[in-house]
């Protein structure tokens, strides 16, 4: 039977992940350490956006507070490393533990609603986290943040490979979850929560699960980011960064598995380009992003996928 030998799009996604990571792993051989650092930031933004998209693209919930996970992940590892003097692995563990608790709590609260009210609840929760980080000076350094956070493995290039490894593992795990029946359940909830409930899914529990995985993935990116930069400020939790995460995801394409990841990398390069050509880089970036909204509404990867699908149809 011909229909059963069709290649699953999930397999294509896996090959894309492996291909992109392979490409990224040889990249430092050809570029300066400035660009290596830049790509590392892009990768982590991409992971953050991938986490966001589990909730948005696959489960249909627009979180407007994902900076909370990024920022909390970053703050807690910073506190673990320089305030508590823990080792890197222990700090990561501490950070992950607190992220799980925060995600469960925030998810429990914000999933009382959907749509705009859900977005507003996540916004309020993340602004609350921002306010706490801003004011809890003894622990967080207030508006100046925390500095001098040591980077494990020394050089940027070495740390880059650690980031790449963590990203690969994270992407594969997310891929495994989304192509499992849980991922299918998420998508039924995105499309039609009422019918999903009727056909046997526990919608509330699955939404919470999605929220939890989503928050942890974005949090992992924040955890890895702080040692790269060596510093963190409350801006990491401010609402504008949540909006930036949304932007990265849509820039890459929310209906393509790898879309948000690519979106994060592209976003960082647009920003770097804008900063390079003018001091008014925010203006340039705003203009570029606005143009992309009009010409690439499906995102970079989404558009490529659509092109390929159209070509396949023409061939048939």
């Amino acid at each position: 039977m011909q229909r059963r030998i069709r290649v699953s799009t999930w397999i294509i996604d896996l090959y894309s992940v492996i291909g992109v990571i392979a490409l990224l792993s040889v990249l430092p051989l050809f570029i300066s350490s400035y660009y290596t650092r830049l790509v590392a930031v892009g990768i982590l933004y991409g992971i953050a956006a991938t986490g966001f998209n589990i909730l948005f693209g696959y489960t249909g919930l627009l979180s407007f507070g994902h900076a909370m996970f990024w920022g909390l992940g970053g703050y807690i590892i910073a506190i673990g490393l320089i305030k508590l003097g823990l080792s890197f692995p222990l700090s990561v563990l501490l950070s992950l533990t607190i992220l799980v608790l925060v995600a469960l709590g925030a998810g429990y609260i914000s999933l009382r609603h959907t749509e705009i009210y859900f977005a507003m609840l996540t916004l309020a929760l993340s602004q609350l986290a921002y306010a706490i980080m801003l004011k809890w000076r003894s622990l967080t350094g207030g508006d100046e943040g925390l500095y001098g956070i040591p980077r494990p493995l020394g050089t940027i290039t070495h740390y880059y490979y650690l980031i790449l490894l963590v990203s690969l593992i994270t992407l594969i795990v997310v891929w495994l979850v989304l192509r499992s029946p849980i991922g299918l359940a998420f998508q039924t909830i995105r499309d039609n929560p009422g019918r999903a409930e009727t056909i046997g899914y526990n919608v509330r529990r699955l939404r919470l699960l999605s929220f939890l995985i989503s928050g942890i993935v974005t949090g992992i990116a924040g955890i890895m980011y702080v040692p790269l930069e060596g510093a963190i400020t409350p801006e990491a939790l401010y609402w504008t960064f949540s909006a930036e995460i949304v932007f990265m995801a849509l820039l890459g394409g929310t209906r393509a598995f790898l879309g948000p990841f690519i979106g994060g990398i592209v976003y960082v390069f647009i920003r770097d380009y804008a900063m390079d050509i003018t001091e008014y880089w925010l203006f340039v970036m705003g203009v570029i992003l606005a143009i992309l909204v009009y010409i690439l509404p499906d995102g970079v990867v989404g558009t490529i996928y659509a092109r390929i699908a159209r070509l396949q149809r023409l061939k048939r």
């Binding site: 909006a243 849509l250 705003g286 203009v287």
Partner: peptide
């Protein structure tokens, strides 16, 4: 207006792009 037929997230993103651009317009 060109975005009314598109998903509502795109309108949100456009206003976000406008927001960051306007900060710099003021600085200019």
């Amino acid at each position: 207006r060109p975005l009314y037929s598109k998903p509502s997230e795109l309108q949100l993103l456009l206003t976000f792009a406008l927001m960051i651009a306007l900060d710099d317009v003021v600085k200019m």
